[in-house]
């Protein structure tokens, strides 16, 4: 049962990655080329039809996978690169700074990605990048808190004391002892945040706060579809988003179950 979670997660997320890779070298049509078949149904050669501007949906869907992965990687990257060091630093017992970071984290936590995205879009214009940065910043507190909690657990182990007695500097203790021991947890969190970011970007794109019209992105395709004349054009990117979100979520769960020794021993 637990293996099934991992397998389904791997298959779904692997499929998204595969499609994105293929789209780098080949798509049936140019995803941004306009043709006269507006809202063409499912037919050859446009197997998934065309959108309101006559662009090939299958090609846009494939290229959209790139955007989706880019959003996930960048958003999680921003959140992890800022959140994890902060969490470790605070977890290693800097009281004054700890309070400051904890409060800042609370404020950021209360601030939804949506609000950040609106602010950023107003400042520099809406694009996939502004949406991704907004999602990334909004995810920092999650990583900061997780890293802090995990660090506290590791800090209670005697090998930290042993390292201090050995004269190991704190920075090296963080790299040598803490990071490797909290990495599995962070990996699981990254997978979960990855799918959250994909979903959030789709939502922002639907609100017009992310990709502009010409850019092939799933959330944008959802926005551009006219559900009265061609409902299928909304369902297709919807399914793609669902598969990606579910895939990375299950992958995270699967990896966690696999790594958790307590669950593993019971079998």
């Amino acid at each position: 049962m637990k293996k099934l979670t991992l397998i389904v997660g791997l298959v779904c997320s692997g499929f998204v990655v595969l499609v994105a890779l293929v789209s780098l070298v080949w798509t049936p049509f140019d995803p941004t080329k306009v043709s006269t078949h507006r809202y063409g149904g499912l037919s050859w050669p446009h197997i998934l039809g065309t959108d309101g501007l006559g662009m090939d949906t299958a090609s846009r869907l494939m290229t959209g996978a790139q955007t989706t992965l880019l959003v996930g990687i960048l958003a999680v990257g921003i959140a992890a690169v800022i959140g994890v060091p902060l969490g470790i630093y605070v977890g290693m017992g800097h009281k004054m700074l700890g309070e400051v970071v904890a409060r800042a984290s609370d404020i950021l936590y209360a601030l939804p990605a949506l609000l950040l995205a609106i602010l950023l879009a107003a400042a520099v214009g809406a694009s996939v990048m502004t949406a991704t940065v907004a999602i990334g910043i909004a995810t920092i507190p999650i990583f900061q808190r997780m890293a802090r909690a995990a660090t506290l657990t590791v800090m209670s182990q005697d090998y930290i004391l042993a390292a201090e007695v050995a004269g190991t500097p704190r920075f090296i203790i963080a790299l040598r002892h803490i990071l490797p021991n909290i990495a599995p947890l962070l990996g699981v969190q990254a997978a979960a945040s990855f799918s959250m970011a994909i979903l959030a970007e789709a939502g922002l794109a639907y609100l017009g706060l992310s990709a502009p019209q010409a850019v092939p992105a799933w959330g944008r395709m959802l926005r551009d579809a006219d559900i009265y004349t061609a409902p299928g054009q909304a369902v297709i990117p919807g399914i793609a988003i669902a598969v990606a979100v579910m895939g990375f979520n299950l992958l995270g769960d699967g990896v966690r179950d696999y790594l958790d020794p307590r669950l593993r021993e019971v079998r």
């Binding site: 182990q157 005697d158 090998y159 050995a166 004269g167």
Partner: peptide, 19 residues
Amino acid sequence: RSSVQMIFQDPRSSLNPRM
């Protein structure tokens, strides 16, 4: 640090499992 060293109670906890 060169002249004083220490051993701990629980060797499960005093050795980093990933080293």
